[in-house]
Simulated assay, not measured.
Amino acid sequence: MSNPNLIALSEAGVSVWLDDLSRERLESGNLVQLINELSVVGVTTNPTIFAGALSKGTAYDKQVAELAERGASVDQAVREITTADVRHACDVFRATWEATDGLDGRVSLEVDPRLAHDTDGTAAEAQELWKAVDRPNLMVKIPATVAGLPAITKALAEGISVNVTLIFSVERYRAVMDAFLEGLEQAKANGHDLSKIASVASFFVSRVDSEVDKRIGALGTPEAEALRGQAAIANARLAYAAYEDVFASPRWTALAEAGARPQRPLWASTGVKDPAYSDTRYVDELVAPGVVNTMPEKTLHAVADHGKITGDTVTGTAESAQEVFDALADAGIDLDDVFAVLETEGVDKFEKSWAELLETVTDQLGRAKG
C-alpha cells in the first residue's frame, strides 16, 4: 500500500524522486517497491552515487569481466556501466513516464564533472549520453556553472531533456531559466516538438545551511545566531518566487503556446546535514505545486514515517524570505561568497567522486584480467 505522507506530498503538487541508483537496487526489485509503496516517480544520479554503487558488492562483476575481456578502457567501462544502469532505470520508469505524459518517470545521468568549465565538451558529452542511453525519459545533468549555461542551451536546442544541477543562488537560477528559454526558442527554430523536451533546475538546499551556519558560528553574535538554520529554506523560497515570475512572462507564454512545458524547480541536497534539525525539514517546508523533491532513501523513509505535509508552504513567502536574507547580510554574512564557495566545492566533490569511480573501475578491470 502507498504511504499517506507521500501521497499527500504528491497531491500537493510535489513529484517525489529518489536521489540514488545502483544495479543492486534495480535487480533486487527495491526500486519497483519504492515506486509502488512510497510514490517515487523519478530518479537522480551523480558521480558520488555511482562511485558508492561500484565500490560495494558484486552486482557489476559480470559486466566488468566482459569489458575486461574486450579490452575496454577505463573511461569506456565507466560509460557503459553507468549508461546500462540508467537505461534499465528508464525502462523501470517507462510506465510512469507514459502515465504522466512525460512529466515524470525521469532518470538523470550527469556529464563528466571534469567538463564543468568546458562548454563545448559538456554539450558534446550531453549528445553522446543522450544517444548512448537512447530512452525518451532520460535527463542529462549539466552543472549550472558559467560555462555550463550555454551548454544547457545547446543541449535543449537539439531536443535533449536537461536536468540543470548545482544551482545555489537565485541570481544563477535566473540565468539558468534564461538559458532554458533560449534553448527552447532554438529547439523550436530547429523543428523540434517542444512538448517532448523536459527540464528541471536542481536547486541545492541543505548545503546552504551548512555553509551559512558555519559562518554564523564564526561570527558568534546574538543577531547572527538568531538566524541559524533559516538561510536554505529562505533561499529556496526566493527561487520559487523567481520561477513564478519567469514562467508568467510573455516570453514564456509564447513558448507554452507552442507546446513547451515549464522547467520545474527541483529541490536537491534535501538530506539534513545537522542532526539538530528535523530530518524532514527540507521536504515539509518546501511544498509547492509544480516542483520536484529528490531525496536520499533515508530522507524518503523519514518523510514516510513522520513527515508533516500540511499543503503549500512556499507560495507567498518571498517577502519573509527576503527579510531573512537582509538580516543575514546585516549580521555580516556575505551570501555572494557563500554561493561561490558552494559551487566550487560542489564541482570539486563531484570531480573527486569521479576520480574514485575511475580508480574503482580500474581496479576491477585489473582483477578481472587476472
Rank of each mutant, 00 (worst) to 15 (best):
V291P: 12
V291N: 10
N293K: 08
N293E: 09
T294A: 08
T294Q: 07
T294E: 10
T294M: 08
M295C: 11
M295A: 10
M295Q: 15
M295E: 14
P296K: 05
P296Q: 08
E297W: 04
E297M: 11
K298D: 15
K298S: 15
T299P: 12
L300H: 03
L300R: 03
A302I: 09
A302V: 10
V303I: 05
V303G: 11
A304Y: 11
D305P: 06
D305I: 00
H306S: 12
G307V: 07
G307R: 08
K308Q: 15
I309C: 13
T310F: 01
G311C: 05
G311S: 08
G311M: 08
D312I: 07
D312M: 06
D312Y: 03
T313A: 12
T313F: 02
T313C: 06
V314A: 09
T315H: 03
G316C: 08
G316W: 02
G316Q: 06
T317A: 14
T317V: 10
T317D: 11
A318I: 02
A318W: 01
A318M: 07
S320E: 15
S320I: 06
Q322T: 06
Q322S: 12
Q322H: 05
V324D: 09
V324L: 04
F325D: 12
A327T: 09
L328P: 11
A329P: 03
D330N: 09
D330R: 11
A331M: 05
A331D: 10
A331K: 09
G332C: 05
I333A: 08
I333M: 06
D334H: 05
L335R: 07
D336V: 02
D336H: 04
D336Q: 04
D336E: 12
D337V: 04
D337Q: 13
D337I: 00
D337F: 02
D337P: 00
V338D: 09
V338N: 06
V338L: 04
V338I: 10
F339V: 01
F339Q: 02
F339C: 07
A340Q: 09
A340V: 03
A340R: 13
A340K: 11
V341E: 09
L342P: 09
E343H: 03
E343T: 02
E343S: 03
E343M: 08
T344E: 14
T344I: 01
T344K: 15
E345S: 09
G346N: 02
G346H: 03
G346E: 00
G346Q: 01
V347T: 01
V347C: 04
D348F: 02
K349T: 06
K349Q: 13
K349D: 11
K349M: 06
F350S: 03
E351F: 06
E351W: 02
K352Y: 00
K352Q: 12
K352F: 01
K352T: 12
S353L: 04
S353M: 04
W354R: 10
W354D: 06
A355H: 05
E356C: 02
E356L: 09
L357K: 04
L357Y: 02
L358P: 00
T360S: 14
T360I: 01
T360M: 07
T360H: 06
V361H: 11
V361Y: 08
T362R: 15
D363G: 11
D363N: 14
Q364F: 01
Q364W: 01
Q364A: 15
Q364I: 00
L365Y: 14
G366N: 15
G366T: 11
A368L: 08
K369L: 13
